[in-house]
Design a protein around this nucleic acid. Sequence first.
DNA 1: TCCGTACTTGACCAGCCGATCAAGAATTTA
DNA 2: TAAATTCTTGATCGGCTGGTCAAGTACGGA
Lengths: 210, 210
Amino acid sequence: MSQARPTAPRKTRIQAQNEELILAAALDVFSSLGYRGSTVDQIASKCGLSKPNLLYYFRRKEDIYFAVLEKILAEWGDTLKSLDPDGDPIEEIGSYIRQKLRLSRDNPRASRLFANEILQGGESIGDFLKGPVRSLLHEKAAVISRWIREERINPIDPYHLIIAIWATTQHYADFDVQLRAVLDERERSLEAAERTLIALFCDGLRPRLP
Amino acid sequence: MSQARPTAPRKTRIQAQNEELILAAALDVFSSLGYRGSTVDQIASKCGLSKPNLLYYFRRKEDIYFAVLEKILAEWGDTLKSLDPDGDPIEEIGSYIRQKLRLSRDNPRASRLFANEILQGGESIGDFLKGPVRSLLHEKAAVISRWIREERINPIDPYHLIIAIWATTQHYADFDVQLRAVLDERERSLEAAERTLIALFCDGLRPRLP
DNA sequence: TCCGTACTTGACCAGCCGATCAAGAATTTA
DNA sequence: TAAATTCTTGATCGGCTGGTCAAGTACGGA
């Protein structure tokens, strides 16, 4: 699967270089047009290769798509590992939000590709979701549950908390078009989003009376 | 635009009936396959009409899409009008969350179609976003700003607050596939989501000390 | 009942797109 | 340098899909 040519067990310099080119172009195209909306020609011309040449490295359009997906899922897995069980709960969750927000800003196309895939039924990543993501979620939920038991944070459902964090942070990548149409430039700063979300998740809206 | 036949100023019984059939089927198909992934044939066979017959009512595939979009945007506009400026802030925001969450549950396909459209660049709804949605957002933001000035809720950015509400509530429709893969049946109840979000937005995570 | 209009459809077309192939160019290896 | 391998591409194919058309059928008013 990671080998373009089944007959070639090792990667040439040219091969590695072109595959990288292709995957970069493919992320670009797939994330903005969706799988079905993208054509092999578009990807090829975006990276300056001919269509048959591209199909020499990846036999099928599907294979390109899978390769892109695989790549971004791997990167994501790495970045999701934080949330130190031994740290201060509020600090940890705050920095988790910050981190995910930055990921949204720095890698919006990956986020959109993922969103697209989910909306389309997510068949290609079902195993990934049911495996790594699921266990990661449960692991983090357990940490949060412990924090709740120790009365270091308010008692809320840990699963829905994490989902809320995912939803709010990814939203800045996935719905960027909407935000651009609806917010003024000045209101769209990452800092404002960061401040608001952290304030919200930490202290909520209700004023502390005394 | 609302008339399928430019030469026919009035709607026949059959016409009204078939257009409704078509739009229902189209929402179904478009929302699960996206615009480019859907075919006119699929929509036609889903509502038991032949393809040419469908294209008799809507000349182009695009026209069907626009009609569906127009319909759901109109319905949405209606449901978004709540948030009474004279009510209790916490109550109002809570009931707004509840309302949007129920909308997600009762009309997930509309939500997904919308998300799909945004991800694809949202050209078809640019005017809608820059117009009605934008002014609605500003209107609500003004209300929230007043509540903040009156010190009835904590000072946070009203725009990002509303966006956070949109993000979290729509997420339950748009990312349903992911939630199914990652959560157990029991954890996926609307009630849990409702409770968690409202607790989060109202009181946050940090315990009140005294 | 008859006539005009609205509706329906099988057959068909043109363009696009994924994929193939054979043949030539470049690069590596010996 | 020569042979072997890898890389590149123009030409082409077949299937799918949006859209058309002509011919027929149902409907509704007089």
